[in-house]
């Protein structure tokens, strides 16, 4: 379980996160949703410690992240896996080397064992064939999967995903969502996902918080998201729905021509 309490974060006097408190549960896919620029990435980066909050607490199963010493911090870091918005694979290494990287750095197992573990992770994400390709040689969806494999290489307890399906087609998005969901269940991880994709919200939104301009507007589950009367949330949900419909109509018209 990851708990944030009264997080405030500002850049150059501009408040980006304003007093955010939330609980992200173990074994569930916890979603952070909101419009572009609402502060989702900043919140996620604050939770994982890439940014330091101005005030507030971040508790990893009771351990306060903000005050940790460097050594304890590094121990905690090894329990965290992160999937970045642009995959962030190391482009000088092959897919296999990427997945092996955290193992090479921190595991004392012999090479064969590490390679086996990496291949296991690649098989988990259905990507064993791409093991010896470089990131520039594979598609965006494959990159995401490779990045997931790398994130789970050290068997993390916490998994963070920043817009896991940005830039992917709807079908691949769905695959990635399901993959993250299944892995979360399999390994009982606490998974936190940033997204503005309504498909993901409906598909894997076990707990959801909605952020608008740095303020936590609403919290609930995917079942409640549609029926909620919250004005801001309705605007968000409806906007993406409308967007999808427009796309559909456009698509039909193109087919007619």
């Amino acid at each position: 379980m990851v708990e944030v309490k009264h997080i405030i974060k500002s850049f150059d006097g501009r408040v980006i996160l304003n007093d955010i408190s939330a609980i992200f549960e173990t074994g569930k896919t916890n979603l952070i949703i909101g419009q572009s620029g609402s502060g989702k990435t900043v919140l996620l980066k604050t939770i994982i410690g890439l940014l330091r909050p101005d005030s507030g607490q971040i508790l990893y199963d009771g351990r306060n992240f903000v005050g940790l010493k460097k050594r304890e911090l590094n121990v905690l870091r090894r329990e965290m896996g992160m999937l970045f918005q642009g995959s962030a694979l190391f482009d000088s290494m092959t897919v296999l080397e990427n997945v092996m990287f955290p193992l090479d750095m921190f595991s004392s197992d012999p090479y064969k064992e590490r390679e086996k573990r990496a291949m296991f992770c690649l098989e988990r994400v259905n990507l064993p064939d791409a093991a010896h390709l470089y990131p520039s040689e594979i598609s965006g969806g494959m990159m995401k999967r490779a990045a997931i494999a790398r994130a789970i290489a050290l068997n993390p307890m916490y998994l963070f995903c920043d817009e896991p399906n940005s830039g992917l087609d709807p079908k691949t998005s769905l695959l990635i969502d399901d993959l993250i969901h299944d892995i979360t269940k399999d390994y009982k991880m606490t998974t936190i996902i940033n997204t503005h994709d309504m498909n993901s919200v409906m598909n894997i939104g076990e707990t959801i918080i909605f952020i608008k301009e740095g303020v936590l507007e609403w919290r609930g589950t995917s079942d409640e998201v549609i029926s909620s009367n919250n004005k801001a949330l309705n605007d968000f949900v409806f906007a993406s729905d409308l967007f999808r419909k427009v796309k559909e109509i456009e698509g039909q018209e193109q087919e007619k021509k």
């Binding site: 121990v75 962030a88 482009d91 990287f101």
Partner: peptide, 17 residues
């Protein structure tokens, strides 16, 4: 610089490297 803007450096830091 490319590693920085494509978050590869962040990815290392988050692993504790």
């Amino acid at each position: 610089g490319t590693m920085r803007v494509t978050e590869q450096i962040d990815a290392m830091e988050i692993m504790g490297v």
